[in-house]
């Protein structure tokens, strides 16, 4: 279980996160939504230790995440970052293998078991046939799957994704999310995924955390959190929700 307790974070005088608390059970998928600048990326970077919070506690599997050395933390948390940086001169396989780093020795030598895990990660993300190609030559959608495969190869019980589909077209978005959720359901991985697309959040997530100006605005089941009034207020734009036949929200759209 992941437990975030009263974390706050500020830069100079700007408050980025303000007393954020929530809990997430094993195997659940939490959709992190909110307007630009709400603190989604900062929350993810606080949980993975890239940012040092001013106060509060972050515990995963009853261990204090803020105190762990990088290697141990990397065995528990993998992150798919918002911006893709693919350095030149590495093959797809070399990059996916880097996901094994927290388990390897200083010289990065992989054993047959590591190689098997890397291969399986590439299979699950449909990039096995690209294994020997230079990764910087691939399309955006393929590169994003390489980074996802690297995160899978890290075999962590917690996976953080920061708007992973932002730069992809619709086909690649759906393909990416399908691959992701198939994997995490099977492995019972706990997932936090920051998203812009409210309909994707509605469809794929078990729980939603709505952030606004660094504060938790609402948290819970998608049908409870995603209401017209609340979304319209937080996004400062009239938003409507069409309900399905069973009376639960089915489609969210801005008023035109």
């Amino acid at each position: 279980m992941l437990s975030v307790e009263n974390i706050s974070l500020s830069f100079d005088t700007a408050t980025i996160l303000d007393n954020v608390s929530f809990q997430l059970h094993k195997g659940k998928i939490l959709g992190l939504i909110g307007p630009n600048g709400a603190g989604k990326t900062s929350l993810i970077r606080s949980i993975n230790g890239s940012l040092r919070v001013d106060s509060g506690k972050i515990q995963f599997k009853k261990r204090d995440m803020t105190a762990l050395p990088p290697q141990e933390r990397a065995q528990l948390i993998a992150t798919v970052p918002q911006s893709r940086t693919i350095p030149a001169g590495f093959t797809v396989q070399q990059i996916v293998s880097m996901g094994r780093t927290p388990y390897l020795n200083w010289f990065g030598r992989t054993n047959p078991k590591d190689d098997q895990i890397v291969k399986s990660a590439m299979q699950r993300t449909n990039i096995l046939k690209l294994a020997d190609l230079p990764a910087e030559m691939l399309s955006g959608g393929e590169q994003q799957r390489v980074i996802l495969a690297r995160a899978f190869a890290q075999e962590t019980p917690l996976l953080l994704l920061d708007e992973p589909t932002t730069h992809l077209d619709i086909r690649y978005q759906m393909e990416f999310l399908a691959l992701l959720f198939e994997h995490v359901k099977k492995e019972k991985t706990t997932v936090i995924i920051a998203m812009h697309d409210l309909n994707q959040a509605l469809r794929f997530c078990d729980e939603i955390l709505l952030l606004s100006r660094g504060k938790v605005e609402a948290e819970g089941k998608p049908s409870k959190v995603l209401t017209e009034n609340r979304l319209s207020r937080v996004y400062q734009y009239p938003i409507q929700i069409r309900e399905g036949e069973d009376g639960v929200p089915a489609f969210i759209y801005p008023e035109y």
Binding site: P70, A74, I77, A78, T101
Partner: peptide, 10 residues
């Protein structure tokens, strides 16, 4: 940052 997420003591 990404290197640290992969366990490198940067």
């Amino acid at each position: 940052e990404e290197a640290q997420q992969m366990g490198v003591p940067v």
